[in-house]
């Protein structure tokens, strides 16, 4: 009968093998926020800054390229939480992030107006493009602006893949439909609300030979795989984009420390000053040139301005 205990102990040891070193993980931390994270690699002192941002800034590789500079200068560690714009702002609202870097101008201004953020600063911009099948059944090529392009897609009842996820890109897509005076009906069959991220939406559009609105960075990063899609409206670079309504500005907002305890306010403001500084703006302007032959983001910060 002793065997059952042997077996249980054995099972527990097996499970514990993987958890060696987590003994203090399971016990309550000695103090709050401070050293609550026993991460594998945190040799530095200087605090942790939580940056809530959209997937495009992380997925494009921009943050990997510029953040080490901030960490070197301040000795702080930046923890990047890359989610949709809506969720990123929610994290700031709940005090779970110290600074947010997103691209949905109106929501950002509302966030500051509601007192969740201190102020908003311009950081950079890129743009949206309309991609679709090269034979362009709806005749989107040559449309005067994005709204006309959308109107042609609707008139042709050509398949259109929508993010459908309340992201910054989806918000922009809806604004263009509104501008075109069209209410796309998901029951119609041609308008497909996927509820997915940009990468998944592009993949789906590619498979279904559908049109979609994409941010240029994600499209360029995935271009090799998207053999049945091409840029039909928006030009080959941001500078070529004929429709200013497709510009996609990113803003940075330090979270208001008065609303929650434990916000790294000083570090957050240092981050805002850093990312809007001429040196970092120059790094942003260079990023992507080697790989895509064009920048993925264009600097936009004007020192000292807030909006």
């Amino acid at each position: 009968m002793g065997r059952i205990w042997l077996a249980i102990v054995l099972a527990l040891v097996l499970a514990a093998c993987g958890s060696s070193g987590t003994a203090d993980d399971a016990s309550p931390p000695a103090n709050a926020a401070g050293d609550a994270t026993p991460t594998a690699a945190q040799p530095r002192k200087g605090g942790r800054l939580r940056l809530a941002t959209t997937t495009s800034t992380e997925d494009s590789g921009l943050l990997d390229a510029i953040l080490p500079d901030f960490e070197r200068r301040t000795g702080a560690t930046v923890e990047v939480i890359a989610v949709g714009t809506g969720q990123a702002l929610k994290l700031g609202e709940n005090g779970d992030a110290d600074v947010v870097l997103v691209h949905a101008r109106e929501q950002e201004e509302q966030f500051v107006a509601d007192g969740f953020g201190l102020y908003r600063r311009d950081v950079m911009q890129n743009d949206f493009i309309i991609v679709g099948p090269p034979h362009d059944p709806a005749g989107v090529r040559g449309a005067a602006d994005a709204a006309e392009a959308f109107a042609r897609i609707a008139a042709a009842q050509a398949p259109f893949a929508s993010r459908g996820d309340e992201s910054g890109t989806h918000t922009r897509e809806r604004a263009i439909w509104k501008q075109a005076g069209i209410v796309p009906d998901p029951a119609s069959g041609w308008y497909r609300a996927l509820g997915q991220g940009m990468g998944e939406t592009l993949t789906t559009a590619n498979e279904q030979r559908a049109y979609t609105l994409a941010d240029r960075g994600t499209y360029l990063a995935m271009r090799d795989r998207l053999t049945d899609l091409t840029i039909l409206f928006g030009g080959e670079t941001v500078a070529d984009n004929p429709d200013p309504a497709l510009l996609n500005p990113y803003g940075v907002i330090p979270v208001n420390p008065a609303r929650h305890q434990g916000i790294q306010a000083e570090l957050a403001e240092a981050f805002v000053a850093w990312i809007t500084s001429p040196e970092v703006q120059a790094m942003i302007a260079e990023f992507g040139k080697d790989r895509y032959g064009q920048p993925l983001f264009y600097p936009r910060a004007t020192p000292g301005t807030t909006s």
Binding site: P28, P29, P38, D96, H260
Partner: peptide, 11 residues
Amino acid sequence: LGDLGWLFTPR
């Protein structure tokens, strides 16, 4: 339980 500071940690 926000005071624990556990969010976005392995805990």
